[in-house]
Design a protein around this nucleic acid. Structure first.
Lengths: 206, 206
DNA sequence: AATGTCATTTACATCGATGTCAATTGAAAA
DNA sequence: TTTTCAATTGACATCGATGTAAATGACATT
């Protein structure tokens, strides 16, 4: 008779791995089906475990949602940090930064995430983004040689403007562009064309 | 003995009135508590009826949600139409239009509505907006004396840009402005300052 | 006053999502 | 091998949201 071990009827994962798989699946569900699609049963079914197992790892359904938000926020801040790094070292043009932000919000799912958080009401999950966007303002200011506080405020306004546009594009861009007969890249082109207005440092008034 | 009529134990409304009350309550719930707060029980409790009554008037919970979306979209289009009318008759400046759009998205609740629709996935409810935004482009183009199609495309881009910014401001504006130390009116001021870039009609190249 | 219509309610049924707990079992440690 | 740990599961309970059907009653019509 064969001495082969019978295939295990259960797959046992390390807790980190289990959480990782669950969060990956949950993110896909959020992006495809919206917040209501992120249920314990749905996530569990996708990765081949039971919903009780998810409760074991995340404590509760709210815990899973919270972990998902934290995970996606972490990815967003990382993307922003990468953009900052490129801006500081490379010859990375500001346009590259605009593209990075737009990609983070649309492809990366930060847009749907932010909308979910905003509609839910618990904005605390966005807190880790604060440092990232402030770094972004710093980086642009340094790159542009901005010194005075007033101009730095203007850089903050520019980042606000880019983020709001990227967020809007990610959520309602496609249908709105269709209504206005605008091409796919209309939003980023507009933002890119308006950006120099901010980045040109005004000479101090004499 | 008194011949006074005893107070009726039930209040009987006309169907239109019942629907109107329900939609008003549902909108308040959406704006305060998000999409998940718009349940049959919650709406029914607010206007003093049973949830079965709402099903009688709207057919189903989905029917109520659909009617709510249609109602809010109608208000948005009406707000846009009013802005168009002011722009055509009055000396209404384009800045007034920017303010009207921003107010519609934030105060009027169109922002949360659009986010809800976008996350839900059924974009068909936004269809009535198409004519309104196209009218908006027409009005601005006429006011600015735009003739050629290329410039008209630019007007479309401007409307897209305003709408995306207003939408973003309505949803994630407050926390994002806080992170960037920006004043309450930062977003509209940015949009207003960038608008002339679009509205100045370029002279035809010779 | 009698009648019919239909808005409204009451009671009940269903379904999905969440949560609990004890039992099971894969895998490492002893 | 034996023991121990804990990831995993299965069964069950609960709760809220949705939906259904019959009964009730407010109000207009006759």
């Amino acid at each position: 008779m064969s001495i082969e071990k019978t295939a295990p009827r259960r797959r046992r994962r390390l807790p980190e791995e289990a959480r990782r798989e669950a969060l990956t699946s949950a993110r896909a569900l959020l992006l495809s089906g919206g917040p209501d699609a992120v249920t314990l049963s749905a996530v569990a079914g996708e990765i081949g475990v039971t919903h009780a197992n998810l409760i074991h790892h995340f404590g509760s359904a709210a815990g899973l949602q919270s972990a998902l938000m934290a995970s996606m926020v972490a990815d967003l801040t990382q993307a922003l940090d990468v953009a900052v790094a490129r801006l500081r070292t490379d010859e990375g043009a500001p346009l590259e930064l605009v593209n990075a932000v737009f990609d983070a919000f649309s492809t990366g799912g930060a847009g749907r995430l932010a909308a979910w958080i905003a509609l839910s009401g618990d904005l605390s999950h966005l807190e880790p983004v604060r440092a990232a966007v402030q770094n972004l303002v710093e980086a642009i200011s340094d790159k542009m040689g901005v010194q005075d506080d007033q101009a730095r405020q203007g850089m903050g306004a520019a980042v606000l403007f880019i983020a709001l546009s990227a967020f809007g594009e990610a959520l309602i861009g496609p249908p709105l562009r269709d209504m206005l007969d605008q091409p796919d890249d209309a939003a980023r082109r507009v933002v890119a064309s308006l950006l120099p207005r901010f980045l040109i440092t005004k000479p101090a008034a004499g």
